[in-house]
Design a protein around this nucleic acid. Structure first.
Length: 330
DNA sequence: CATCCACCGGAACTTAGGGTTC
DNA sequence: GAACCCTAAGTTCCGGTGGATG
């Protein structure tokens, strides 16, 4: 759920910038693409969705939202965008040739459309951005961690066509900003008395600028406190305990999506880290009945690194894979 | 500094699987 | 149900890159 605007603290300026950038849609024009960059948990998605929702209230504007982590394939993404823009009409099956979906959208949609692509750097095939850009009514709102990672993955044609537009950077939250975000949530739960300012700041400091981690921690703390009988009381110990739990919860979200093959690779690295690519592949061949080629393994290792599940150190002969620990990058 | 070697990743191709059409 | 179309995943091929080594 997207919090209402009054819950959005410390992002008023950015929200205005986003709304201004997309404002041409109010006059029926197609705004230039918009790029939101910033580390995780700084409110990029929230700001984009609120801005689009506000614009929709004022004019006839179509919208679509796709999380590219979940929908990372070219066809799936096109299908998702097309059905959202057409409200499910006129698309027969997912196997309908993509040229047909795009033609249908092109023919039937005459108002500006704002398409939010969240975690767009997770897209396997960035050419899908070019496909969408071909639709005259569509503006892309691309959300990613870093500009470099996103544009590096594009071929030159896509980059020159899609990469034009406003760019807005969102910085990490400060400790006090995080604390006040948490305070709003606590007040909503009517638990104002149960948590001290100092404890909220402690959560904010540990979350390291990431509101998702901070909020996740707070939720765990509150749940644990409620599980105990009597009035809700939050101790410092409970806060320390929630830290590890919150990190694990976010990590397992990603781990859940691994295939068996990717799990095998992860386990080999975990058992042997730091491990050079060659040893990793040999170990994999021993474990697998029908081992895939090293090229395929490389592709998947690349994904695991991109998902922040594995990390790599060194280059060429000194290259080693190891498990990425959230604790180590702080 | 030149050479070597492990590694990287793009591109074209093959294969398997699913759906559509007649 | 056969012919056809489309896609994702994997394979093959290969040129490029950058530490290590002498």
């Amino acid at each position: 759920m997207v919090p209402e605007r009054d819950l959005v603290v410390h992002r008023a300026d950015e929200l205005t910038q986003i709304t201004n950038a997309l404002a041409p849609a109010l006059d029926g024009r197609t705004p230039p693409n918009l790029f939101l960059f910033g580390p995780s948990g700084v409110g990029k998605t929230m700001a984009a969705r609120i801005a689009v929702r506000e614009l929709k209230q004022e004019a006839d504007i179509g919208d679509a939202y796709v999380n590219c982590w979940e929908t990372y394939e070219r066809t799936g993404l096109q299908y998702s965008v097309a059905t959202q823009l057409l409200h499910g009409a006129a698309i027969h099956r997912q196997s309908t040739p993509r040229s047909e979906w795009l033609t249908t959208v092109r023919e039937k949609v005459d108002h500006p459309c704002l398409v939010i692509l969240d975690e767009v750097d997770q897209l396997e095939d960035k050419r899908v951005l070019y496909d969408l850009q071909e639709l005259p009514a569509v503006s892309l709102v691309c959300i990613a961690n870093q500009a470099e990672g996103l544009f590096a993955g594009m071929d030159s044609r896509t980059r020159s066509r899609v990469g034009i537009g406003h760019r807005i950077e969102l910085d990490s939250y400060s400790v006090t900003q995080l604390a006040s975000i948490l305070r709003k949530r606590i007040d909503q739960l009517q638990l104002g008395h149960a948590v001290s300012e100092r404890q909220l700041e402690r959560v904010g400091r540990v979350a390291d600028g990431d509101a998702r981690i901070a909020i996740s921690m707070l939720r765990i703390v509150v749940e644990n406190a409620r599980a105990e009988n009597g009035p809700v009381e939050i101790t410092d110990d409970m806060i320390e305990a929630a830290l590890g739990e919150a990190h694990n919860a976010l990590r397992s979200e990603h781990m859940d999506r691994l295939t068996d093959f990717q799990w095998t690779l992860y386990e080999i690295v975990k058992a042997n880290e730091p491990i050079p690519p060659r040893d990793l592949y040999e170990e994999y061949c021993e474990r697998a009945e029908n081992p895939k080629t090293d090229r395929t393994v490389r592709t998947h290792l690349g994904k695991l690194v991109q998902y922040d599940i594995l990390a790599e150190r060194g280059a060429s002969q000194t290259k080693r894979y190891l498990t990425a620990s959230l604790d180590s990058d702080r």
